[in-house]
Every structure is written in C-alpha cells, then in structure tokens.
Amino acid sequence: MNTSPHLLDEALGLMPGISNGGALSQGCIVLIEDSVETSGAFILHYIVKRALSLDSSGIVLFLALAHPFSHYERILRKLANNLSRLCELFPKMAELRQGARPVTEYFAEWKGCNLSVHREQKRFHLFDILQLEFPCESKKDSVEQGLVELYSKIQSAVEVISSRDHSRAHISILIDDLSILEIAAHGSMDHVLNFLHYCVTLTSEQNCSLVILNHEDIYPDIEGRRLLSHLVYLADFIIKAEPLATGIAADVHGQLTVLKKGTSNNGHYSADKASNFHFQVKEHGVDLFFPGSRC
C-alpha cells in the first residue's frame, strides 16, 4: 500500500535534491482545476507547505481572494503534525550536532507550518484582496487600472525579494482563486488573461513559479470555458481534483489527475506524463494512493 503524499511530489517534480528542495521547478505554471464536489484547495496548501519547508528556501507570494489570513494559518499549522514527518526529520538531526540549525526549528516544523512566523521572516507574503472590487463607473478603465495596481504590488515584491541577500530563493506566486478575480473584473476574461500574462512574464524574467486555482464546473457554455482552455494552454502542470465516478466513499474522497506537459529544454524534449491517484483528506494532511492499492 502506498499512501505517501510523495506521490504528488513526484508528479510535480518536488523531490528533494531534484528540484529546489521542495519548491516547484523554476518558471513552471501549475493549474489546479477543482469542482464543487471536490475542492482542490488542499493541493494549494500542500504546495505552500512544501515551498516553506526547511528543505526549501522558497518564498511564497499568496494572492488571497477566497479566504482571510487566519484561515490559511489555521490549516497550515495543522499540516505535517504527524509522526511520519518527525521520522523524516530525524536523519537531519545530524545537522544539529554540527550546529547548522537549532532544534527548535525542526520541532517547529514538526508542529506544523506557522504562517505568522514565516510572515515575520518575510518568507510568506499575503496579498489580502478579499474585498477586491473595482468601481463600476467607467468600467473598462477602472478594472484595468485596478489590475495594473495589483500587478505592480506583486512585481515590486518580487523585485525586493530578488534584490535581497538570499536572492537565490525561489519565489512561488499562488492565486486562490482565479474565479473571484474574474468576478472582481466584472466577468471580463480578457482583463483576467492580461493580468495573468503579466504574472507569467515574471516566470520567465524572475524564474518564479505560478500556481492558479480555478473551478471547472462554473462555466455553463463554450464561451465561458474559453478561460479554462486558455489556462490549459498556458500551464505546464494541470491538476484535476474530481469526485470518484462511482460516488463518494468513506475512505476515498476523490481522485487527482496530474498531467505534466512535455517540454523542450536545450533541444531535448521530455514527454508528457499523466498520473492518477485517489486521495483522502485528513485532519493533519492528505493521503494519496494509487487506485486499488488500499484494502
């Protein structure tokens, strides 16, 4: 039985030593599509946790459109608070003897991901745009101006981080969630895509990664689904969280499908790879396992 969250690490290329010690690979764009019956928010939380873990020196810029800071803090604090993570941290205790890191740091990680601490240490930047709204008068200009201002904040944050001493830190920009940004933009797909395009330029210019959460089942017609199609063309990884075809089960809450699109790098092409897992969301994390591997 394989019930390791490392299945997701493997699918997203988050393996320590391969990537940035837990952060997403540089310049990659991840699209998470979920549905009403199966929320994909836990993937977002997991990516935040991995980016802020001790293995990684990552920095997170979080565009919180759906929930306040306290929500994320509460959830992240509970994540990783389990014995298996403590067992994983034991081998690193060797570093303790060499005085590399104080024991409190390891203990803090075992206890969970404390967003307030990461915020103080300027590793977690939250853009609290829960009440994001653009005035209705002269609609077109005000929406565009509002999005320019939002992008301006993100860009200056990225520039400040890049200019700091630890400029090698990998920056992840997370958007939770895009549909609310679309509502704020008065349903204008073009404005949302323009904003996203500018965020995408940060992935190539500053090597940031971009994670977008959006809902699959909120678009009634083909016209509405065009935004999703745009996002699929844009993304390097597409993650779909959906209910089981057979309905909900007590110990399986849904299935995840991860598609890694083929990429060309220095003239070499890496093929597409699709993976499928079942998951069970628990109080302190999520169990991922291959279909049929649980008795």
Partner: peptide
C-alpha cells in the same frame, strides 16, 4: 468527455 479521462487523452494525443 471531461475530467481525468480528458486529461489522459490530452497527454496521449500530444505524443
């Protein structure tokens, strides 16, 4: 065809 099936097809058809 939606969801995971579509995503698998997408991966296969890109090859």
């Amino acid at each position: 065809k939606r969801g995971s099936e579509n995503l698998f097809c997408l991966g296969r058809n890109s090859q």
